[in-house]
């Protein structure tokens, strides 16, 4: 009986390992996806077609607030993971909630920025530069949206079932995803906004 239990646990462990390796490979494919979009942005960022450039459009202090919201959310996501290790259900829920709010704040700020640009007639239809800007930043935003949805579903599981092994695995995957999006954002912040503002 005992031996069976050990075998069972080893099987579970191997399955978890498999999922985590698989998720890493998926993240690498996502990385290639963003790399392609960065390459497209690098090619098109000068093609303003008589419209505004990044220097005219970007407002760095605003983007800095966005950035801090997202970086903070990564930190609180880490705190949620630490609480998961301790199996402290309520703490996990609390930090997930904070992470969700910060993520939603980031997304709201981004959508507000997009709306303003579109309102001023500077939508993705304006120029090659703006097309690549909206799609690069928007793809990151879409990932954040799915991340928020995922977080909500996971929060629901934790609420109903507590911290089980299966939920720990899922929270691990989620935190990988969320930190990955943070890394991507650092690149967006640097390449799109910083370089754009100083007009490189």
């Amino acid at each position: 009986m005992n031996e069976e239990l050990v075998l069972e646990q080893r099987r579970e462990h191997e399955a978890t390992q498999k999922t985590i390796v698989g998720f890493w490979v998926y993240l690498m494919t996502d990385c290639v996806l963003f790399a392609s979009l960065f390459a497209v942005y690098a090619v098109l960022h000068g093609n303003t077609f008589g419209g505004p450039s990044g220097h005219d459009l970007f407002h760095l202090p605003y983007v800095l607030v966005e950035t801090f919201a997202l970086l903070m959310s990564s930190f609180t996501c880490g705190l949620a993971m630490l609480a998961t290790q301790r199996r402290a259900r309520n703490e996990v829920l609390f930090w997930l909630f904070v992470t969700f709010c910060l993520g939603a704040l980031f997304l709201g700020l981004e959508l507000h920025e997009f709306a303003n640009m579109v309102h001023d007639g500077n939508s993705w239809r304006r120029s090659g530069f703006l097309s690549s800007y909206f799609v690069l930043v928007g793809t990151h935003g879409t990932h954040i949206t799915f991340g928020l949805l995922w977080m909500a579903v996971l929060g629901g599981y934790v609420w109903k079932r507590g911290i089980t092994d299966s939920i720990r695995k899922r929270l691990t995957l989620f935190s990988l995803f969320w930190h990955f999006l943070d890394v991507i954002w650092i690149f967006i912040f640097t390449i799109v906004y910083l370089y754009g503002s100083i007009g490189v």
């Binding site: 497209v40 093609n47 077609f49 993705w124 239809r125 799609v135």
Partner: peptide, 20 residues
Amino acid sequence: LDRTIGTHFFTAGGGGNAMM
């Protein structure tokens, strides 16, 4: 996106780049 929402990634005008 070029065909559906009017972006300019590969269009001949509008700052697109077909060679990309």
